[in-house]
């Protein structure tokens, strides 16, 4: 089975944050601080600052191909299944935060019980043939979901370039939520 992925079209995202609300609702997350999905704004200008571009990035767990969180989890609580979904068995999680230290994207979140929780592509919805909640509500169709081999190279390149820029430039990177 091929790896399942989110796709994201930077040019379409308006920063409305409906994806966050849908994710919180689906996963019963009360606090924005521990939401599985985040929307960030990225301001970029040219050298003379005559041209400025504002873009938004909606990010959650990337379900990495070789996920570092899976590798470093001392309790083997994090696994990656055949469809490429990285998920956590909260009964095994000891709340050591090793996954948080290893994740390049800040995906692992820690609820009040001290254990890790994260995006699992809305497993129950997908099992029932539905889209993940965040994708379902994205009115501009910036967020998509499906097998990796159906994602166009151009779209992936655009999104990943923007994500890397955002992660590298803390001064230009502001979380909206």
């Amino acid at each position: 089975m091929t790896q399942l992925v989110f796709s994201f079209d930077v040019s379409r995202c308006s920063g409305c944050m409906a994806c966050i609300v849908a994710c919180q609702d689906q996963n019963d997350i009360i606090s924005e601080a521990t939401a599985f999905r985040r929307v960030s704004s990225l301001e970029e200008s040219n050298e003379t600052e005559t041209d400025c571009q504002l873009s938004f990035l909606s990010m959650s767990c990337m379900h990495c191909g070789d996920a570092p969180c899976v590798m470093v989890c001392p309790a083997a609580a994090i696994t990656k299944n055949e469809a490429g979904v990285v998920s956590v068995n909260r009964d095994l999680c000891i709340g050591c935060h090793s996954c948080e230290l290893a994740c390049p994207f800040g995906a692992p979140q820690f609820a009040e019980d001290g254990k890790m929780a994260k995006c699992d592509f809305c497993h129950d919805r997908v099992e029932a043939g539905l889209l993940p909640a965040c994708v379902r509500v994205c009115s501009t169709k910036a967020l998509g979901f499906g097998p990796l081999d159906e994602l166009t190279e151009n779209k992936a390149k655009k999104a990943s370039t923007k994500i890397i820029r955002a992660l590298l430039h803390k001064d230009h990177f502001e979380e909206k939520n």
Binding site: P74, A75, A76, L92, I94, G95, C96, G114
Partner: peptide
């Protein structure tokens, strides 16, 4: 056996069996 889990076992967060993650 993973010694890193041992303090969490002592704390009562996880069971003895889970100290053997594989």
């Amino acid at each position: 056996f993973n010694p890193m889990i041992a303090p969490y076992y002592l704390k009562g967060i996880t069971d003895w069996d889970n100290c053997f993650p594989y």
